[in-house]
Design a binder for these strands. Structure first.
Lengths: 154, 154
DNA sequence: TCCCTGGGTTGGAAAATCCAATGCACGGCT
DNA sequence: AGCCGTGCATTGGATTTTCCAACCCAGGGA
């Protein structure tokens, strides 16, 4: 897998968006992170049509982002929980939320309390040197022949 | 503005996705960060239909994520550049790329070189205490009446 | 003159989304 | 037993997005 679409640039961002880029997918994940794990509650909170939610949940389970956990036998009832891979999408939501807070909201509707005691203001740092990453400090290096900044070779 | 949709949870993630959640929007931003600023090149590299790209660019400009910069008069030709707000979406793409690299790709198609000399592995840290943020260290606090983990009040 | 590039717009077909109604398996009540 | 409520979907048809090829316009170059 992981062949990026058509004639477009091979890219992990595109691959990731193929999994979580469809409408509601990230909002479903948000609910799971908030502790909401059941179909009806997710549907209500996200505002998604039920058939679409069915499709999204199936896709996320197939992609290994969520897993169904039996919480009641007879009738079989499952809740949706984040896998390890799903948990690793948390930073994406955190940064998206931060951006919305800073640029769209007057008052942040939700705040995350960090264990250090203060409200979380997430920052990206470089694991190697530990410094905060600013945009000037970073340059792309393309690993696939034909795809540089200019785009496809011919 | 910033009234979240319908009956769904008020949330900056949803607000952010209303701007950059439509198909191709984040890929357009990726190209801009890669240094690709012109309509045709963006269209080729993201693989988007031209009319859709037109719509996305307009939306991103209207939302203050991109701006049109005149690079040629007569005929008037513009390129698309990230505003300050747009630049602040870079962390979202970085974390999305990291996730794709780790969970979908065999070989990362692109690598970012950090100024410290090593390839960038981005980590989220708390600005207050400087520590890396793990999922257990963080708990949501809801600021809007009626919307907790359980969802809408009635 | 004719062709090429950059940056779109248009019209109709195909796909995705929306929404209300339905189905089905249980559990609890009476 | 009959009826209601919850949990979790699936279906059918209307609406909205996306797709794609064709077209348009302005300038530049041969």
């Amino acid at each position: 897998m992981t062949t990026s679409q058509k004639n477009s640039r091979p890219c992990s961002i595109a691959d990731a968006l193929a999994v979580v880029g469809e409408k509601y997918a990230l909002l479903v994940l948000r609910e799971v992170f908030f502790g909401v794990h059941r179909f009806d509650a997710i549907a209500r909170n996200v505002g998604a049509p039920r058939d679409i939610l069915t499709a999204r949940l199936r896709r996320l389970v197939d992609a290994g982002v969520l897993e169904k956990v039996l919480y009641n036998e007879r009738p079989a009832r499952y809740e949706y929980r984040a896998t390890e891979a799903g948990q690793e999408l948390r930073p994406v939501l955190l940064m998206l939320m931060r951006w919305g807070d800073r640029h769209l909201a007057d008052v942040p509707p939700t705040v995350w309390r960090h264990s250090c005691g203060s409200d979380l203001d997430p920052v990206i740092t470089c694991r190697a040197c530990g410094d905060e990453v600013h945009r000037r400090d970073v340059t792309p290096r393309f690993q696939v022949e034909g795809w540089s900044a200019e785009g496809s070779a011919h």
